[in-house]
Design a protein around this nucleic acid. Structure first.
Length: 200
DNA sequence: CGCCAGATCCACT
DNA sequence: GTGGATCTGGCGG
């Protein structure tokens, strides 16, 4: 059962926090599943957030972020990478959660193959572009409804983590973004100690 | 280990 | 024409 739309309609920081420990599931045309537990997220909230793609208003690229919660916002960057966001809050307000890291759950060998990595390797899903490549997520899923039955991509409830298992920090890769946006603690991670025994 | 250049597109200015 | 919510491999300490 996918997480329902009301989960995503809440404040973005809450959604980013609560997505940790839940499971992102991708169903391919073959019907096969690949999935992973969410270990790292970032919140991007509104036109005034100067790190958010919506800072310059609504564009073709960021249109999905302005739409209803519970949809995917998938964008292309650096000439070769896709990144996945989950749209939050009210229809008409641009906000989303960037997924930055997963722990492999189902379909590890297929994910390794898509990433062209040998078996036994680490670093399979620890990055926003890596997890998209591993799960086969690209621009064709931009605007995809994660809450509809028959979705190709959705989030399943799994673990509810206590606050003691969550670490906050500044968002990553915001080189030219001015303060205070650059340093706001809007990055959420499952505490590294809890993942110390886990490979990807 | 850490630092950094190069890869490689496309939406936006 | 520009530069990015990134990744990888190469190089030096």
């Amino acid at each position: 059962m996918p997480l329902p739309r009301p989960f995503f309609e809440r404040p973005t920081l809450q959604v980013a926090r609560d997505l940790l420990g839940q499971r992102l599931v991708r169903r391919e045309t073959s019907g096969k599943r690949t999935s992973g537990w969410i270990t790292e997220t970032e919140a991007y909230i509104g036109p005034q957030d100067l790190a958010c793609h919506a800072r310059a208003g609504r564009t073709v690229r960021n249109a999905a972020m302005w739409g209803a919660a519970g949809h995917a916002y998938v964008y292309f960057t650096y000439g070769m990478h896709w990144c996945l966001n989950l749209v939050t809050q009210a229809d008409g307000f641009p906000a989303a959660v960037l997924l930055r890291g997963l722990l492999a759950a189902e379909g590890r060998s297929r994910m390794l193959r898509r990433r062209r990595m040998p078996a036994e390797s680490v670093g399979l899903l620890n990055g926003p572009a890596k997890l998209c490549q591993a799960l086969g997520i690209d621009g064709s899923l931009d605007g995809h409804d994660l809450c509809r039955s028959g979705a190709r991509l959705w989030v399943e409830p799994w673990l509810d983590l206590p606050d003691s298992a969550v670490t906050l920090g500044p968002r990553v890769g915001l080189n030219k973004v001015p303060e205070p946006w650059k340093s706001l603690p809007w990055r959420f991670r499952v505490s590294p100690l809890l993942l110390a025994n886990c490979d990807d």
